[in-house]
């Protein structure tokens, strides 16, 4: 009978990895909350851009356009995460959602309407990232459970030996 110990160690390492990954959704949520706190202060801790860079970037899009883009993005992102959840697919895209939301904060900041729309972005961001976090947590907890079952079988084999 082959030596089971390396396989057992491999399974234990996988369990540790999956447990670490299961809380990754919370890290993204914390990062987004930190960014929202920065946005509520109108990013006053960041150095302001020079007029040359402002000129290079051009004028910000109208607030109405950003609002509609946010509605479209929020709706699509929620549907996407729910589809991932129902399909039991590997969770992906938490980082890209974080960057999309940061881009919305940046656009509103340059259009001068960040203060008015802060809570809207915060709510849509928390919704998307909470759903994503819940999916990540469930997905990796299931993986941990599978690996734990394998580990229990391996432990049984070792005991029988």
């Amino acid at each position: 009978m082959p030596d089971i110990e390396p396989l057992r160690l491999q399974v234990q390492a996988k369990i540790r990895k999956f447990e670490l990954l299961s809380s990754s959704g919370l890290w993204i949520l914390a990062l987004f909350t930190a960014m929202s706190i920065g946005a509520s202060r109108d990013f006053d801790f960041l150095p302001s851009l020079s007029p040359e860079i402002h000129e290079m970037l051009g004028s910000a899009p109208p607030t109405n356009f950003i609002n509609w883009a946010l509605v479209l993005y929020g709706f699509s992102a929620i549907i996407m995460v729910l589809t991932q959840m129902t399909g039991g697919k590997k969770p992906r895209g938490a980082i890209s959602h974080f960057f999309y939301l940061s881009a919305f904060y940046t656009f509103y900041h340059f259009s001068g309407d960040l203060h008015e729309n802060l809570w809207a972005i915060f709510t849509v961001g928390m919704t998307i990232l909470s759903l994503q976090g819940y999916h990540v947590w469930n997905y990796y907890k299931d993986k941990v459970r599978e690996e734990q079952e394998i580990l229990a079988e391996l432990n049984k084999l070792i005991e029988e030996k």
Binding site: F75, I78, L82, W119, T123, V124, T127, L131, H135
Partner: peptide, 15 residues
């Protein structure tokens, strides 16, 4: 998931 999605979208819509 339903609670998070519905709550988030309703609050976002209202805001």
């Amino acid at each position: 998931p339903i609670t998070i999605a519905v709550t988030g979208f309703v609050v976002f819509g209202c805001l």
